[in-house]
Design a protein around this nucleic acid. Sequence first.
DNA 1: AAAAACCCTATAGTTACTATAGGGTCAAGA
DNA 2: TCTTGACCCTATAGTAACTATAGGGTTTTT
Lengths: 129, 129
Amino acid sequence: MLIGELAKKTGCEVVTVRYYEKEGLLPKPARSKKNYRIYDAFHIERLRFIRHCRSLDMSLDEIRFLLGIRDEPTQDCGKVTALLDAHIMEIETRVQALLELKQHLLDLQNNCSGEESIENCGILRSLQQ
Amino acid sequence: MLIGELAKKTGCEVVTVRYYEKEGLLPKPARSKKNYRIYDAFHIERLRFIRHCRSLDMSLDEIRFLLGIRDEPTQDCGKVTALLDAHIMEIETRVQALLELKQHLLDLQNNCSGEESIENCGILRSLQQ
DNA sequence: AAAAACCCTATAGTTACTATAGGGTCAAGA
DNA sequence: TCTTGACCCTATAGTAACTATAGGGTTTTT
C-alpha cells in the first residue's frame, strides 16, 4: 500500500503521515525500488490510533507516551488512566478560563452601544486601563 | 524611560516590547546616543491597551485592527462592538468543542479501571478504532 | 577593577502541521 | 509518441506569539 492509500484509509493527509514518520510516531516503512513508502495493516492500525488521540486533542508528546506504553507491555495500564485524567483536568481548566474570559468580554461589551464616536467608545476606553 | 522601565510599568517582558515593535503594534521609539530605546507616556498607554487586549485573548491581528480604528477616528465604533461580538462567539464555540471533547474523554475513561494489563486495557483498545 | 544588571541585534526553537519549490514515475488519452 | 494528470520523493519556509540563545556594548554596584 502506498502512502496515498494509507492516507485515504485513515483520513490523514499524506504530508501528515510523512510528518509523523519524521517525528518518530510512525516507524519508517519499507521502500519500493522507486523509493516509494510501502505500508501494511500494522501502519493503518497505528496511524488510526494516533489520529484518534489527536481528535481527542492529545499532543504528539502524549501520544508518543501512550505508544510507548503500548509497545512495552510489561506494566499495568495505570499510567494510561493517569494520562487521561490529567488531560481531562487540563481541559476543565481551559473551559474555566474561557468562561471567565467570556464574562470579561461581555462586561466590556456593556460599556458601549456601538454607536458612539471613537473618542467616546466605552470599550476602547476600558481597554486603555 | 528605557525599555526595562516600560516593561515593568506594563507587566510586559522586555523582549515582548521589542517584538511588538517589530510587528508594528508599537511605533518605533526615539533612540538615545547609545542606541537605547526611549519611551514616554504615549507608549505606556498603547502598550497597556495591547496587553489588556491580549489578556482577553485577542490575536495581534485583532489588536492591530482595534489600534487602527483608534488611530483613525472618523467613524463610529460599530466595528469595535462587532469585533467583540465575533470574539465572544468564537470563545463560545471553543467552549462547546472542549465540553464535547471532555465527554469523549470521560467515556473513554470508563473503558478501563486502570488495573488491567496493557493488552486488556479498554482505553488503548478503544483508541485503536 | 570586576561583577551584576542593564541595553542592543540576529537567529533558532516552540506545536502540529501547511505551503512551496523542484523533480521523478506511471497510466491513459490525442 | 507525446503529453497530461495523478501520483510519489526531498527539502525548506511559514503559521502565532512569543521564548531562548549567542554574542557584544554600557552602566552601576561592589
